[in-house]
Every structure is written in structure tokens, then in C-alpha cells.
Amino acid sequence: MKINVDIDCTPAEARAFMGLPDFEPMQKRTLEVMERRMMEQLENFTPETLLKMWMQPVQLNAEWFQDMLRRATK
């Protein structure tokens, strides 16, 4: 025997029916804080600063590689 039950409800109604907590207000506050922080930090990320951040590891690797070659040829 097979029984199918279809329930038509919203996710909020399903959470309330199952007794699950509603995290929507907390999620909204968290997203607002994240958005505010991102907008504050956006001023620090100009193309010049991003280029410096990306190129720094490349420069360090190049220096390390040159140093390794110097030591290998001694």
C-alpha cells in the first residue's frame, strides 16, 4: 500500500509547523552588517592596491627562485 500526501505551504509555514526556529531576522541583520563592512572596505580596493596584492607573491617567488639558483651554482 502506498499513500501520498501533498502539502502546499510556504517555507515559513513549514518551519512553523515543524517547530523550527525562524532565522530570517538574524540573517537580515547579518547581511546588513556584511554589506556595510564590504562598502566601507571597497574604498581600499583600487586597481593599484589589487595589483600590489597580486604581484607581491610573484615577486617573493622570483626572489626565492633566484636565491635557490645562486645556492645551487655555488
Rank of each mutant, 00 (worst) to 15 (best):
P11C: 05
R15C: 03
P11M: 12
R36E: 02
L60Q: 12
L60Y: 02
M53R: 03
D6R: 13
L20V: 08
M68E: 01
K2I: 06
V33K: 15
M26Q: 11
M68G: 01
P57H: 02
M34G: 04
E13M: 12
M53E: 05
E32P: 00
T30Y: 13
Q41T: 10
P47N: 02
T10L: 15
L20G: 11
P47D: 03
E13T: 07
I3H: 06
N4I: 15
K28W: 05
V58W: 06
E24A: 14
W54D: 10
W64S: 07
K2M: 09
D67S: 09
D67M: 10
D22A: 10
V58Q: 12
M38F: 10
E63V: 10
T46Y: 02
Q66V: 12
F17Y: 05
M34N: 13
P47T: 01
F23H: 14
T73Q: 08
A12Y: 11
M53A: 03
T73A: 13
N61R: 12
A72G: 06
F23Y: 15
L31W: 08
F65G: 00
W64Y: 14
E35M: 08
P11T: 09
E32S: 10
T49I: 14
D6W: 15
W54C: 07
Q27Y: 08
A14W: 12
R29D: 06
T73E: 04
K52A: 07
M38Y: 14
M38A: 07
D6P: 00
A12S: 11
W54Y: 10
T73D: 07
L51K: 07
K2N: 13
N4F: 07
W64T: 02
P25Y: 06
T73K: 08
L51E: 15
K2W: 05
A12K: 13
E40W: 05
L31E: 03
F17I: 05
N4D: 07
W64G: 00
I3W: 09
M39I: 11
R70G: 03
Q59S: 11
R71N: 07
